[in-house]
């Protein structure tokens, strides 16, 4: 039986170098909450694993007006962070509804994003907050806005020799309103059927720079820019909210799956966006 190789990368750069060295045979491992499920289901047989737990990629700090979250930081550590509670409560709210405590203790923010699931629950809050990712490759590093990261279900701009090293989250404005809602089959341990994050900065009673993101209703987590555009500079009255909710639903292109139908997802998208905006207006 093939032994396989297991590496403990000491830095993101070393991990990227190992990826380059082993070509397509290598995979990175952090919490393992996605990878090991695939292994146990025999969907994937690891040949080379590069472990990121010792690569100095865990931890949360502040840089100017932004939070820097190491990609290998477990979700529960982000949830427990006073810094995140203060600067990005929207992200903490979303994480609290993810999976279950044991999964959040192992699963990482980088893994959630790198897996590029349309239902990735950290993606919607991070999209509306304008987060960006530091990608480290064998030859160098680059910063990519999260809005440009996802390219399809399970697909992203991540090159074969690149890993996500860090997530940069601009701090929420203290005056901004925000809301998050996840619709799942049950409260805990449930993949999103629809999730919506709304970030709504205010200026003189009018909204400006509002952002709406939807999860699990398109091939990638979705920024509903057109819907947001209908809100900017306006008061959040009933007609404006209804128009924005409609536009958000129109931007979705959901699928039927075991968790919900496309029909349901489209309607739920409209309803949840409407609910959240109405709450913010109230």
């Amino acid at each position: 039986m093939a032994e396989g190789e297991f590496y403990r990368a000491a830095s993101p750069r070393e991990a990227a170098g190992l990826l380059a060295q082993h070509g397509g045979a290598a995979r990175v491992l952090a919490g393992g909450t996605d990878l090991m499920v695939a292994v146990n289901k025999r969907k994937f047989k690891p040949q080379v694993l590069i472990y990121l737990g010792d690569a100095g990629m865990s931890g949360i700090s502040q840089e100017g007006d932004a939070l820097l979250i190491g990609a290998a930081t477990p979700l529960n550590e982000i949830l427990a962070s006073p810094l995140v509670a203060d600067k990005a409560p929207l992200l903490a709210t979303a994480i609290k509804q993810m999976a279950s405590p044991a999964i959040r203790n192992a699963g990482t923010i980088g893994g959630n994003l790198a897996n590029a699931s349309p239902a990735a629950d950290t993606a919607t809050p991070l999209l509306v907050l304008g987060a960006s990712l530091k990608l480290v490759g064998a030859k160098g590093e680059r910063e990519v806005p999260l809005a440009e990261f996802f390219t399809g279900p399970g697909q992203s701009v991540l090159a074969a020799d690149e890993i996500i090293a860090q997530v940069k989250v601009p701090a929420q404005s203290a005056e901004a309103k925000w809301a998050y809602r996840k619709v799942g089959k049950r409260k805990a341990q449930s993949l999103s059927v629809v999730s919506v994050a709304v970030y709504c900065p205010l200026s003189g009673g009018k909204v400006s720079g509002v952002a709406i993101a939807l999860g699990a209703v398109a091939p990638t987590p979705l920024l509903a820019t057109e819907a947001a555009g209908l809100l900017n500079g306006k008061a959040l009255d009933e007609a404006t909210i209804a128009a924005a909710a409609k536009a958000a639903a129109e931007a979705t292109s959901p699928i039927d799956d075991a968790r919900g139908t496309a029909w349901y997802r489209k309607r739920a998208s409209e309803a949840v966006v409407k609910q959240l905006l109405t709450e913010l207006a109230g």
Binding site: F6, L29, G32, T33, L35, M36, V37, N40, K41, L49, Y51, G53, S100, P101, A102, I103, N105, A106, Q189
Partner: peptide, 25 residues
Amino acid sequence: TGDCGTCSVLLDGVLVRSCITNALS
């Protein structure tokens, strides 16, 4: 698959699913 919790153990005091925890990690 990490869904049911019957395999739960404490790893350095923190609750994890041993069924989807890679042994080498």
